[in-house]
Design a protein around this nucleic acid. Structure first.
Length: 481
RNA sequence: GGCGCAUUCGUCUAGGGGUUUAGGACACCUCCCUCUCAAGGAGGAGAUCACCGGUUCGAAUCCGGUAUGCGCUACCA
C-alpha cells in the first residue's frame, strides 16, 4: 500500500461544506499523508441545476483553513465532459449501454405504480431492446435520449470493502441506471468511475451512503475494462437525535465552526475521532500524530453522533496549548467583531496583550473571548447593584469595605498584582472580613461580574485610575439601594 | 416493498472466546486546590455489551433468527 497511494476528495458544489464531507476529506488526506501518497481534489459539478455559486471557493477555502493541502487539482468534471461522452459511446457500441427515450413523466408514473404495488422501484428497461426503427422514430420526434447502463440480468457483484469486508449484491436488484443525462452531463456513477480510472485513484474513501451504489461502479469498471480501485466506506455522522446531520442540528457547515471560534487543529482532531480511534485512551492527537497513526483498520463501522460538548472541551484544550502571542493573534478578529460598537477602534494591541493571558485559560472558543474580556474595554459597567452585596455581607459592610479599599488603593504607588495582594489581604483581616468577602465586592465593582479572572491581575491590567473610578461608581450604586 | 449494513455507559469509543467486578474521554455529581470563574487533582454515578436461541467447560467477543436504526432504491451527488 506504500506504493503511490492516490486518493481523492470529490465534493459537489451544491452547498457549503458539511462537516461530514470535511470528515471524508480529512480521512482521505490522512490516508494519503500516512502513506506518502497524493491527495487530489476533484469538483463534481455535473448537476447544473443544483450548482451553488461560490460553493467551490468556500470548499477550497475550508480545506486550506484546516490545513488539508492537496497535491493535484482542483479538477472540474464540467471541463471533462468529452471524456464521459466517449466512455458512454464506447459502452453503447459494446452493447453495455443503450439510449433511453422515456419521458420524465413516464418514469414518474412508473415509479408511482411500482410503489403502489409495493414493487421495488427501478427502471423497467422499457428502452433496453428498442429496434433500429423504433429508435429512429423517437429521434424523429426530437427526443434527446439519456444513456443507460445495460445491467446484467443475473449473477452477482461482489467486492471487498476495506472497512466493511465482503459485500455481495445480486445483479437483478440493480436497475439500468442513467450514465449520461439528456443535458449531456454524466451522472455521478459514470463520471466518478471514468475519473478515478484516469486519475489513477488507488483507494476510494467515501461516505457509507455510497456503499449501495458500489456494485454499479464495479460493473462499470468491468464493462470499461478498467481495474477498480479499493473501496473503503466511511461511517456517517449523525445529529444528536441520530438522524442524518442537517440544519436542524445547528451548525453543519464547517464555515460556521470557523466563525464560532473553533480552532482548525481542534476541529481536525475532533473530526478524526468521529469514526476512528487510536486506542482506548488517547484523545488529543495533533496533526502529525494523526498522520502517523491513522489506519483504515481502526475505522469503525457504526455511525457517530456529533458531540458538541466534547468539541467544546477539545477546543479549550487546544486554546490553552497555544502560545499567548498566537492566541492573541487569533483572538484579535473576534475581539474586533465581538466587542460592542461603542468601544473605540482600532483596539490597542498593547492593552490586549496584557488581557489575553487572563482570558486564554478560560475560553473554550475564540468567539467567547469578546464576552469574557468585555469589561476590560467598556466605559460603564452594567450590573445589578445587589451583586455588590455578597453572601453573608450587608450593605453597610460592603460600603465600608469599598470605601476603605478606595482610600488605600489611592495611596498605592505601584499598581501591580503583587502590591495589590500585599495590600488587600491584610485589609480583609483589618476589616474583619474573609478574603472572599472583600475580594468579592471588589470584583463586582471592578468587573461588574461575580465570575472573572483573578482579581489582582485584573485590577493591575485595568490600572489604578480605572479601578478607582469603578469603585466610586459602585459606591454610588450602593448608596442608592 | 427490495437490497445492503449496523447495534458496548446520554454521547465518542476500547475491547474480537477465559487476563473484565467491561477500560478511557466528553457531559453530570462530590471533594481538594482556591479571592470568584476557569484549569488542574482525587473520587462517584452511569452499560443485564439490542433481544432470543445455539456452539463451547467458558461468549460482549463465534453462528442463526428477531427487533430497531441507518443507507441506497433520481436524467442528485
Amino acid at each position: 500500500m506504500n506504493k503511490s497511494v492516490r486518493v481523492r476528495f470529490a465534493p459537489s458544489p451544491t452547498g457549503y461544506p458539511h462537516v461530514g464531507n470535511i470528515r471524508t476529506a480529512l480521512f482521505n488526506w490522512l490516508f494519503a499523508r500516512h502513506y506518502g501518497g497524493s491527495f487530489i481534489v476533484r469538483i463534481e459539478d455535473t448537476d447544473v441545476a443544483r450548482k451553488v455559486k461560490g460553493a467551490v471557493e468556500v470548499i477550497l477555502d475550508s480545506l486550506c483553513w484546516l490545513g488539508l493541502d492537496w497535491d493535484e487539482g482542483p479538477y472540474f468534471q464540467s471541463q471533462r465532459l468529452e471524456l464521459y461522452r466517449e466512455a458512454a459511446k464506447r459502452l453503447i457500441s459494446q452493447g453495455d449501454a443503450y439510449y433511453c427515450y422515456c419521458s420524465p413523466q413516464r418514469l414518474e408514473e412508473m415509479r408511482a405504480e411500482q410503489v403502489r404495488r409495493k414493487q421495488p422501484p427501478g427502471y423497467d428497461r422499457h428502452c433496453r431492446n428498442l429496434s433500429q426503427k423504433e429508435r429512429a422514430e423517437k429521434e424523429a420526434e426530437g427526443i434527446t435520449p439519456v444513456v443507460r447502463f445495460q445491467t446484467p440480468l443475473s449473477g452477482q457483484t461482489k467486492f471487498s470493502d476495506l472497512i466493511w469486508g465482503e459485500v455481495v449484491f445480486e445483479n437483478d436488484t440493480i436497475d439500468d441506471f442513467v450514465l449520461l443525462k439528456s443535458d449531456g452531463y454524466p451522472t455521478y456513477h459514470l463520471a466518478s468511475v471514468v475519473d478515478d480510472h484516469l486519475m489513477e485513484i488507488t483507494h476510494v474513501l467515501r461516505a457509507e451512503e455510497w456503499l449501495s451504489s458500489t456494485p454499479r461502479h464495479r460493473l462499470l469498471y468491468q464493462a470499461l475494462g478498467f481495474e477498480p480501485p479499493q473501496f473503503a466506506h466511511l461511517p456517517m455522522i449523525l445529529g444528536a437525535d441520530r438522524a442524518k446531520l442537517s440544519k436542524r442540528h445547528g451548525a453543519v457547515s464547517i464555515t460556521e465552526y470557523r466563525e464560532q471560534g473553533y480552532l482548525p487543529e481542534a476541529m481536525v482532531n475532533f473530526l478524526a475521532l468521529l469514526g476512528w480511534s487510536l486506542d482506548d485512551k488517547t484523545e488529543i492527537l495533533p496533526e502529525q500524530e494523526l498522520i502517523n497513526s491513522f489506519s483504515l483498520e481502526r475505522v469503525s463501522r457504526t455511525a457517530a453522533v456529533f458531540n458538541r460538548d466534547k468539541l467544546n472541551w477539545m477546543n479549550g484544550v487546544y486554546i490553552r496549548r497555544l502560545s499567548v502571542e498566537d492566541f492573541t493573534q487569533r483572538a484579535l478578529p473576534f475581539l474586533d467583531s465581538g466587542l460592542p460598537p461603542e468601544v473605540k477602534r482600532p483596539l490597542s494591541i498593547e492593552y490586549i496583550r496584557q488581557i489575553m493571558p487572563l482570558i486564554q485559560e478560560r475560553a473554550r472558543t475564540l468567539a467567547e473571548v469578546a464576552e469574557l474580556a468585555q469589561f476590560f474595554f467598556v466605559d460603564k459597567l452594567d450590573y445589578a447593584p445587589s451583586l455588590l452585596i455578597g453572601k453573608s455581607m450587608s450593605q453597610e459592610l460592603a460600603t465600608q469595605a469599598l470605601e476603605t479599599a478606595k482610600q488605600r488603593l489611592g495611596r498605592l504607588e505601584v499598581f501591580d498584582a503583587e502590591s495589590l495582594e500585599a495590600m488587600l489581604r491584610p485589609l480583609a483581616v483589618e476589616l474583619g472580613l474573609k478574603t472572599g468577602q472583600l475580594f468579592g465586592v471588589l470584583r463586582v465593582a471592578v468587573t461588574g461580574r461575580t465570575a472573572a479572572p483573578p482579581l489582582f491581575q485584573t485590577m493591575s491590567v485595568l490600572g489604578k485610575e480605572q479601578c478607582l473610578k469603578r469603585i466610586e461608581t459602585a459606591l454610588d450604586r450602593l448608596h442608592r439601594l
